[in-house]
Amino acid sequence: GRVSLLEPDVRLRNCGIIINDLTESDSGSYQLRVNGLKNGRENGLTFPQKVNISVKGLTQKPTVGIPPLTEGQQTTLSCTAPGLCSGSDPEITWTWRGAGEKDSHITATITAVETSVTRRRSLTLTFNPSAEHHGTNVTCKVRFTNDVTTEETETLIVTYMKKPVISGNTAVKEGDVLRLTCSGDSFPPSRVTWTKLYFNENLQIKNVLHDVSGAATLLISNVTAECSGQYVCTAEQRITNVTTAAEVTVTCK
């Protein structure tokens, strides 16, 4: 049942065949034989030409399509089985694995893009990416008839930005050192700046140490009472920025 004529009407003299669900055991020598009747008796002709077929093990991998991923924006991943399959539908499975997590299997309906003879089998996965998905691995596994399998793994890169976090002591005494660090968790890393609010107007602060990408430390030595007030940390990424503020209080010794 795995072999069929490409053109069922033999009067068209096309004896091409298609063999579905190939295995390595299908390797060998093939000849064409035409059977018929002559004078009411079975007769036939075996053509002398031979063709040697060598079937190798599957080395191709599925094609995984991943568009740019942004947190909160629904997206669709695609996995296409290798080759132009004309036999049984393969089983396609998505496996999701985060850092230190167990595998999570996801299955869905296979979609097919058909031609007159063959079909490409693919499976899509629709989800809403988040910061937690960034850096996780997704694997597409394809299992054909006779337990022939192949898989491809890709790492997800998600663009995201979380609200920056301020750490440090906001209550200091005159003459002490004010040290506040603002860290912005984002990808790609955001540019972090400090400003001080003066009468509803933000003024850029110059004495800022950029410790690492995505973080900045505000450092003021020998603080005075004038240093009291609201300090705003801004994390900027492309056309998006997120702010958080801290109220600093300077008291007399």
Results as ranks from 00 to 15, higher is better:
residue 133 H to Y: 13
residue 233 C to L: 06
residue 183 S to A: 10
residue 44 G to I: 00
residue 201 E to Y: 13
residue 25 S to W: 08
residue 185 D to V: 07
residue 42 E to D: 13
residue 170 T to W: 00
residue 6 L to H: 00
residue 31 Q to S: 12
residue 231 Y to R: 01
residue 5 L to M: 08
residue 7 E to C: 06
residue 12 L to E: 15
residue 61 K to E: 11
residue 173 K to N: 14
residue 39 N to S: 13
residue 120 R to C: 07
residue 42 E to Q: 10
residue 24 E to Y: 00
residue 26 D to C: 01
residue 113 V to W: 03
residue 134 H to I: 01
residue 243 T to I: 09
residue 252 C to S: 15
residue 169 N to A: 13
residue 67 P to M: 05
residue 67 P to Q: 05
residue 5 L to N: 03
residue 77 L to V: 10
residue 135 G to W: 06
residue 194 W to A: 10
residue 249 T to Q: 10
residue 212 V to I: 11
residue 183 S to K: 15
residue 37 L to M: 13
residue 22 L to I: 04
residue 120 R to W: 01
residue 59 T to M: 07
residue 239 I to S: 14
residue 143 R to P: 02
residue 46 T to P: 05
residue 148 V to D: 00
residue 4 S to R: 14
residue 243 T to C: 01
residue 163 K to P: 08
residue 4 S to G: 07
residue 22 L to Q: 07
residue 195 T to L: 03
residue 21 D to H: 11
residue 215 A to I: 04
residue 241 N to L: 09
residue 215 A to L: 01
residue 46 T to K: 04
residue 136 T to I: 10
residue 99 A to S: 12
residue 64 V to K: 12
residue 2 R to T: 02
residue 150 T to W: 07
residue 210 H to Q: 14
residue 235 A to M: 10
residue 38 K to Y: 13
residue 159 T to P: 07
residue 93 T to C: 00
residue 139 T to R: 12
residue 207 N to A: 10
residue 101 E to S: 11
residue 48 P to K: 09
residue 88 S to F: 00
residue 3 V to L: 06
residue 202 N to D: 15
residue 249 T to F: 09
residue 139 T to Y: 00
residue 134 H to K: 00
residue 54 S to C: 08
residue 26 D to R: 00
residue 168 G to V: 09
residue 116 S to T: 13
residue 226 E to C: 01
residue 227 C to I: 08
residue 90 P to T: 03
residue 101 E to K: 08
residue 199 F to Q: 15
residue 242 V to C: 04
residue 86 S to L: 03
residue 148 V to P: 05
residue 205 I to E: 12
residue 122 S to L: 11
residue 204 Q to L: 08
residue 130 S to T: 15
residue 151 E to L: 05
residue 129 P to C: 02
residue 250 V to S: 03
residue 219 L to N: 15
residue 177 V to P: 02
residue 199 F to H: 15
residue 159 T to N: 14
residue 51 V to I: 14
residue 240 T to I: 14
residue 168 G to A: 04
residue 104 S to G: 04
residue 210 H to N: 15
residue 3 V to M: 04
residue 129 P to K: 04
residue 186 S to N: 06
residue 174 E to G: 13
residue 105 H to Y: 12
residue 135 G to F: 03
residue 214 G to T: 09
residue 222 N to F: 05
residue 83 G to N: 05
residue 92 I to T: 08
residue 59 T to C: 01
residue 59 T to D: 06
residue 149 T to H: 02
residue 251 T to C: 02
residue 73 Q to M: 13
residue 222 N to V: 05
residue 155 T to S: 11
residue 47 F to K: 06
